[in-house]
């Protein structure tokens, strides 16, 4: 597993110590640690706390609030399926079932090859191209079962 390098930790420490309120950097630090470690592991949470100079419980308190900080391992890419109202109108429920069947997993699970984790998400602000989903940070709209199959092929 990738780790934050010593150099990077030093850089981040310097950055945080330049701040009047180090706590304000916690969300940025959690994002960076998550990108490096894949998810916010205990080890990553400890690294963040150490860099920011706050107790680990403070990091935990935030991490468990935000839905985009993962305290458990996820696949290489997380598929976020919008399940809010406009996507629901456009048939999101069937597409969710299609995705589950194609990936062979339920919501919250990761495919056996470690490629994808499937999660619901609130409105992605892509209602004009509903139904929509994010794969990693890439947005896909106007989804159909066929298009989902192509996207999975491409993103895997």
């Amino acid at each position: 597993m990738a780790m934050l390098s010593e150099d990077r930790i030093k850089e981040l420490r310097e950055y945080v110590s330049s701040l009047e309120h180090p706590e304000e950097a916690l969300v940025d630090l959690m994002h960076e640690a998550q990108e490096t470690y894949g998810y916010l592991s205990d080890e990553a949470a400890e690294a963040v706390a150490e860099i920011a100079g706050v107790p680990v419980i403070k990091v935990e308190e935030l991490a468990t609030f935000y839905n985009l900080i993962f305290r458990r391992p996820v696949g290489r890419k997380v598929i976020f399926v919008c399940d809010s109202i406009s996507c629901w109108v456009m048939g999101m429920e069937n597409l969710f079932e299609h995705l589950k069947a194609r990936l062979g997993i339920d919501i919250g699970q990761t495919t056996t090859d470690g490629a994808f984790t499937l999660l619901p998400i609130c409105c992605l602000g892509a209602c004009h191209v509903a139904p929509a989903m994010l794969v990693g940070d890439k947005l896909y709209g106007n989804l159909t079962p066929e298009r989902i199959d192509e996207i999975l092929e491409k993103e895997r």
Binding site: H21, E23, E24, A25, L26, V27, D28, M30, H31, E61, L62, F65, Y66, N67, L68, I69, C122
Partner: peptide, 24 residues
């Protein structure tokens, strides 16, 4: 500031807490 999810962050006082590194 790039946040990390949760609708409540859009409530103005919750947003300020979030920006301060607190639960929103």
């Amino acid at each position: 500031h790039r946040s990390a999810g949760r609708y409540e962050c859009g409530e103005e006082t919750a947003l300020m807490n979030a920006l301060e590194g607190k639960r929103a």
